[in-house]
């Protein structure tokens, strides 16, 4: 069934689910949306609404998927081997940890080491990672641009309408240094916070 021929309730639910699954590993998110789309395929609006109620709130499904994906595997299969002793695939958390630290430090101080390019490299690393939610990436990227910009515009307005000895544009220039630092530290905290979450 094409998207156009799906009842509105199905289209809305799928779209809401896709948004809610942001941050869930791509393969798992696709498996869930495909499975749900398959389940709702061919149903009329009334039947689809009933099934959607059974499926549950997209935010709840996504939260469960996030927890299940982040958690270590269950006891029997979690410790590097399965019951039968066959080596199991274990994703090391440390691999992500160093990545988070390097990306965050580049955002924080990369621009000082290699002007602009260092900061851009950090932002690219952040966007390539699944360790941050999309909104966190936007905040990490836009804050160092927006805060100095606002301060600079503010300094222009203040000097135009209320001239004083205080040079606001100095503050704007200083913010070019300290806001990326704060932004990098915030990204580091957000990224490691997820890493450090206890296995459930």
């Amino acid at each position: 069934m094409s998207h156009e021929s799906q009842p509105q309730v199905v289209r809305s639910y799928l779209s809401e689910l896709e948004k809610a699954l942001d941050g869930v590993p791509r393969e798992v998110a696709k498996e869930i949306t495909d499975g749900v789309a398959e389940e709702l395929d061919g149903l009329n609006a009334a039947a689809a609404a009933t099934r959607i109620e059974e499926l549950g709130d997209p935010a709840f499904i996504a939260a469960e998927a996030r927890t299940a994906s982040e958690a270590d595997r269950p006891v029997a299969m979690a410790q590097g081997s399965t019951v039968s002793g066959t080596p199991a695939t274990v994703t090391p958390r440390t691999e992500e940890r160093w990545y988070i630290v390097v990306a965050s430090l580049l955002v924080a101080a990369g621009g000082v080491v290699i002007p602009l390019l260092g900061w851009i490299a950090g932002i690219v690393m952040v966007w390539m990672s699944k360790s941050w939610r999309t909104w966190e990436k936007w905040v990490g990227m836009l804050a160092p641009l927006a805060v100095p910009g606002i301060l600079f515009l503010g300094s222009l307005l203040i000097s135009a309408f209320a001239p004083s000895n205080f040079t606001w544009w100095h503050l704007a220039i200083l913010s070019i240094l300290f806001v990326p630092f704060l932004s990098g530290m915030w990204l580091l905290w957000r990224g490691l916070r997820k890493q450090g979450a206890p296995a459930r």
Partner: peptide
């Protein structure tokens, strides 16, 4: 399980294994 949100990560994991 509470929802399909728990099921699919598990199926993905079992398939990977």
């Amino acid at each position: 399980i509470a929802s399909i949100g728990t099921l699919y990560p598990m199926l993905t994991r079992l398939r990977t294994q």
